[in-house]
Design a protein around this nucleic acid. Structure first.
Length: 194
DNA sequence: TCTAGGATCGGCT
DNA sequence: GCCGATCCTAGAT
């Protein structure tokens, strides 16, 4: 399991290092493991695309201002749950959004949650889809991912992303964030199998 | 209170 | 590739 020190680093470093890591979810109906292939960094009060931009402190973003190594979950478009991992800590207000992954364990359970007709590649290739595949809800906001007892944690199983497969570029869906929309804070592992 | 808009998805053309 | 669903959140009033 990744320790809290892993998350207590600059957000861009954490985002980069999260690629290829295993995200494990133990829920009442079973266990699911996915390999992270796409993440985005959100850099706190100075980042117009970030929920803590300009020091915004509301109930929703309270978790982002807390300790590193916790899950920040929010509802988007009133429909989908997005999973973030709080980084840095000490009130930095920064986090990494988990956008895409490949199912490694618990494929049957994921399919049950996502529906029988969903294409294989579409099981977990977006933040909302991943949330559904892992049965993430607002009740999971604030979970400590450095505590196996939370049922949500990350692990390094030794799989490495080839340097040439690593890509970075502008974040998705943040056109309204001005110049920050073009910051290369999206990291992905191209063509990496689960 | 009211209103605008959103870190998306899936169905349809 | 386009477009509507859907409802919560944040900021304004």
């Amino acid at each position: 399991m990744l320790r809290r020190e892993f998350y207590q680093r600059p957000t861009v470093e954490v985002a980069h290092d999260l690629l290829g890591k295993l995200l494990v979810r133990r829920h009442r109906d079973g266990m699911v493991g996915v390999r992270l292939v796409e993440v985005e960094a959100y850099l706190g009060p100075a980042d117009p695309a970030c929920h803590t931009y300009r020091g915004r402190r509301t109930r929703r973003v309270a978790t982002m201002w807390g300790e590193a190594g916790h899950a920040y979950v929010y509802l988007i478009y009133g429909v989908h749950h997005c999973l973030n991992l709080v980084t840095v800590g000490g009130g930095a207000g920064e986090a990494v959004l988990v956008r895409g992954a490949a199912v490694v364990h618990g494929r049957d359970l994921v399919r049950r949650r996502r529906g029988p007709r969903v294409a294989e590649r579409a099981l977990t290739d977006g933040p909302g889809k991943l949330g559904q595949a892992l049965a993430i809800s607002l009740a999971d906001d604030g979970l400590d991912v450095c505590d196996r007892g939370s049922g949500l944690w990350l692990a390094d199983d030794g799989v490495r992303i080839r340097p040439r497969a690593r890509q970075c570029g502008p974040r998705v869906g943040v056109e309204s964030a001005g110049a920050a929309a073009s910051w290369p804070l999206r990291f992905l592992a191209a063509g990496e199998p689960g």
